Simulated scan of single mutants.
Amino acid sequence: MPLLFYNRTMKILFIGDIYGEAGVNYLLENISYLRQTYQPNLIIANAENAKEGRGITLKIYKELMKSGISLLTMGNHTWKNKELETFIEGSNVIRPINDRSNKGNGYKIIKYNDKKILVLNALGRAFMAEEYDNPFLMVKEVLEKETYDYSILDFHAETTSEKVAMAHFLDGKIDAVVGTHTHIQTNDNMKYPKGTLYISDIGMTGPMWGVIGVDKDIIVNRFVYAESVPNQVAKGPRQINAVLITLEPTRKIEKIHLEEMS
């Protein structure tokens, strides 16, 4: 892990899964407030649900980039909107490193002043619908071969056990492991024994009163009556969930929650 330089500041704002138009718009409405309040050097966001819960479009990508976001990570819905295939090359979107795609990249190095920040994206394998390559070994390989000053992994996974295992596996080898995918902000933001910062899930940016973003009645009826109705983004008040990762001059990870009044 790189040595710290205490005369510098390095803070990264990481926005949790942006869900649908509600999440995109609420983030755009509040990103200036977030920037002024937390003064991050960089902003990263998970956008695999940005287009109504299924992938991302070029229009949304451009809106998020124009707002000042530096990089977008993805997840198991990366390719659900095929438009991404037309612009991912050369973009500031990274897809999971282990999803076996031949398009795009699973990591990117962002330059900020004289520093290089390595950001990786990986999918967990427990309870996922598809077969993916081993994320532990693939992330380790990149960390060992690339040159950088700071490193962050967005681990898009279903189970807390797999996420925690990844943090232990990489403790002292990476600056931060943040979990996405389950859309519920967890209460375990902490620094691991060898210095890696961690949270099991950043949470979701989107509707407050749905079921992880989807209209609540659709999901409740699916559980209770086994009804099969396509997902629709929930309406009503919106929220932003994020974390502020501070790497210099101190090392800490703080939760952020912002919500719209009912």
Rank of each mutant, 00 (worst) to 15 (best):
D171M: 05
Y198M: 14
L120N: 05
A129D: 02
M204W: 01
G210T: 09
W209L: 15
P135G: 10
S200P: 03
P135Y: 03
A45F: 05
P249Y: 11
L84M: 10
Y38P: 07
E48D: 13
A167S: 08
N187T: 15
V178S: 06
N76R: 01
K173P: 03
N121A: 09
M1D: 07
E141T: 14
I240E: 14
T205H: 05
T180V: 10
K62P: 02
K51Y: 06
K252H: 05
R8F: 05
I60V: 15
T159G: 00
W79H: 10
N134Y: 07
D201Y: 03
S67R: 05
S161A: 15
I117C: 09
G23A: 03
L123E: 09
K108H: 03
F5P: 02
A167Q: 00
V211M: 11
S228M: 03
L13C: 12
F136E: 10
G106M: 11
A234C: 07
P237Q: 11
T86D: 14
M74T: 06
L258A: 09
E48C: 11
K111F: 01
L28V: 12
Y225W: 03
P40Q: 13
A157D: 05
Y132W: 03
V214C: 02
E260T: 05
R54M: 12
E158C: 07
Q239S: 10
M204I: 01
H257W: 02
F127R: 05
N105C: 04
G213V: 04
L153T: 04
I184D: 08
S70W: 02
A22N: 09
I219C: 02
R238P: 00
L247W: 00
R222T: 09
H77D: 15
I174D: 12
N241E: 15
P40N: 13
K82E: 13
